[in-house]
């Protein structure tokens, strides 16, 4: 019980905050509940199938395959593949974190993981179509053109700034999580 409360402490505090909003303004509180219901639905659409597929990926795809395509020696091929997989994905960025963790566990190169995260966050193809439709091709394509080199550069800057030990810890953490 104590462990459970500790685990859900943040959640309970957030719920309490919404309770306070509700007391201050019932209208805003109800609106918050409505948005929560929307977010919950979105998560329900995304997370269960993603986690099931990750479980399957974990048991069926051998480590060697991941290392070959996205691991240390994968070079340009690994970078391109990371961008393509990230861009083909649908859903908000938090859906990318568990996927990245499985890739990491299976031996993908750390810079490729970061490139994958960057691609998922901002060069998604389904979203791009929508961006072109609502904001125009000049806007969307300028963003895309600067984003692709941007995410690769950010990935390498991050690796430069992260101590090796910390990266090792993050990789070990991915073993525990899945």
């Amino acid at each position: 019980m104590k462990v459970l409360i500790k685990k859900y402490m943040g959640f309970l505090m957030a719920v309490a905050a919404v309770g306070i909003i509700m007391v201050l303004s019932t209208k805003t509180g109800l609106k918050a509940l409505g948005i929560m219901a929307g977010t919950f639905k979105e998560m329900l659409m995304l997370l269960p199938p993603v986690f099931v597929m990750l479980g399957l990926l974990d048991v069926w795809v051998p480590r060697e395959t991941m290392v070959k395509y996205m691991g240390e020696g994968s070079g340009i091929k690994g970078i391109v593949l990371s961008i393509l997989i990230g861009s083909a994905a649908a859903g908000p960025l938090y859906g990318a974190f568990p996927v990245a963790a499985v890739f990491m566990k299976k031996g993908a190169k750390f810079s490729n993981i970061l490139i994958f995260l960057g691609a998922w966050s901002t060069t998604k193809i389904p979203t791009l179509m929508f961006e072109i439709a609502s904001l125009g091709p000049a806007f969307a394509l300028t963003r895309l053109a600067i984003n692709i080199p941007g995410i690769i550069i950010i990935a390498h800057l991050l690796i430069k700034l992260m101590p090796k030990k910390e990266i090792e810890r993050i990789r070990e953490n991915s073993y525990e999580i899945l």
């Binding site: 859900y8 943040g10 959640f11 957030a14 719920v15 905050a17 919404v18 909003i21 805003t28 509180g29 609106k31 918050a32 509940l33 409505g34 948005i35 929560m36 977010t39 919950f40 998560m43 997370l47 938090y94």
Partner: peptide, 14 residues
């Protein structure tokens, strides 16, 4: 995930 869900709701309502 649950924490984020509640915070998003509160934040976007305000």
């Amino acid at each position: 995930i649950l924490t984020v869900m509640v915070i998003v709701g509160a934040l976007l309502a305000v």
